[in-house]
Write a protein that binds this DNA or RNA. Sequence first.
RNA 1: CGGGGCGUAGCGUAGUGGCUAGCGCGCCUGCUUUGGGAGCAGGAGACCGGGAGUUCGAAUCUCCCCGCCCCGACCA
Length: 574
Amino acid sequence: MLKMSTLFLRTLRDDPADAEVASHRLLVRAGYIRRIAAGIYSWLPLGVLTLRNIENVVRQEMDQAGFQEVHFPALLPREAYEITHRWKEYGPSLFRLQDRKGGDYLLGPTHEEMFTLMVKSEYSSYKDLPLSIYQIQTKYRDEARPRSGIIRGREFVMKDSYSFDFDDAGLEESYQKHRDAYISCFNRLGMKYNIVKAVAGAMGGSKSEEFLAPCATGEDTYVLCPACGYAANVEAMQTKVAPGNAQGVPAMEELDTPHTPTIDSLVAVMNANFGGGYTASDTLKNIMLVADGKAISVLVPGDREVDLKRLQENLSGVHELRVFEEADFAQYPALVKGYIGPQDALKSGITLYADPRVAPGTSWISGANKKDRHARFVLNGRDFIPDAYVEAAEVRTGDSCPECGTDVIIDRAIEIGHIFQLGRKYSQALNLTVLDSNGKSQTVTMGSYGIGVSRAVAAIAEQTCDELGLNWPKELAPAKVHIVATGKDDLPFDTALKLGSDLEAMGISVMLDDRRDASAGVKFKDAELIGNPIIVVVGRGLVDGNVEVRIRATGVKNDVALTQATSSIAALLS
RNA sequence: CGGGGCGUAGCGUAGUGGCUAGCGCGCCUGCUUUGGGAGCAGGAGACCGGGAGUUCGAAUCUCCCCGCCCCGACCA
């Protein structure tokens, strides 16, 4: 039984000055966590209990699915990460250090390499597969900007699993098993979440989905279709646009459009001099970018910005993407800044990408590649032909769902899980093979699957808290029942202690506020702040043989006969 | 890394050149109180983020450094 008289806990009456988001404020105020450095937190007893509860739900669901728990060190030698090039590619986000002999080490940000090597050292036959193993472990990433308390830290607890299969069908099956296990896990954690299509991105591999907990303070943006349930990360959102009707589009016509280097100025001149009714969406924006040192050209409708992150994710294999600077324009004198059009792209030799919204058969107003000149009736398929189509334009609320055409909404969320089909990227690099039934070596295919365990503490706090404080689902709370003894006589304190013992004997965890010197008001405030699901007040009702049972989440209060208290509480918790 | 804000006791803060750095919460002692963050009295607790400088005099002004928060870039 957790007794408040001795519990290592100090709640704060004021919000800490360095906390802004609700989960951070409340976890600090209620005495769950304390900041040590940017993105690095200590856990006090209440925090540890909650974290362990979440860990245990995750662990049970993993074990239930047949995955086996292992454990790796956080402190790792450089070698394996050198082979997969991540020692370099991970860049400044990797915590690196040296031992006394000058050997390079790192604090593991994720463990694909180590898991792959572990399987390699134990297994060598197709008969050993499939295999899924996992760990719950502390990860280290030197984030450029840790934020929102425990939501994005530099040290955090993650459950990471890895699946090993003989072939693609096996990988698909392991992936689905993980997906199902994640669904039951997050359901049990009492979270609201969406499963969202994601781009595999830097991890390589093909298929990837994120589990996103909707939350205004979340840092991920995703697209949701209210009609069919289609959900995608904004990077992964697909644009479906019908081809334009090229029939009857007049010949391309060059126009005199002085002083129109921007879309707004161009639309104004078009409406003034070349007939009305033009809007930015009739124009074509031709953005010059540098992708890993190579100039590329991207077409998007004039009323949309290029979403660099989205573009980069969809240009597979591009590590660095930036917009043209003056120096880049200097290298391409044929490009007239502000008046670039795709008509001469072939001549320039620069790869021309088009957003799907710039569909075949659509015609546009674009730059004419001459200062103060534009062209209209510039037809895709006749006047220019993109080398490739790529998702580049920003996604907006009201865009069409690629599945059903309904207007999508855009929402924010916290990423609490991510599942990947990695394929053979790591097994190939580290040479993880097994013998097939013909005695031939075959490269194993892998998946990786993560749950942000410490982040889930914050995400659940965000989703469940109210103006009074935290408000945990019963399986996660530090204790299921929070008993408050009030008054100055011994009776309520003795009764409360007895009630607590009875509940614990029934397997119900109890926190008992047995402080003799704290006023009732303080105890009520603390109970609400700490957020255990059931609060029982043992005090003045005792003269009638009653205790008061409150539901933290709803605020509902009921007097219950002391003799019925344990059974009534047990019923509430079942 | 760019932009903005901030750093005074465990927490929240006042103090913008001049007495011993003030207040609230929390903490300690005593008395009173005990169903919504109690009252009175007494007390402990601060190298005012660090360093250098300006000045008769610096929490306060100047420079450098460190740290923290927010927005952006970045983020398996």
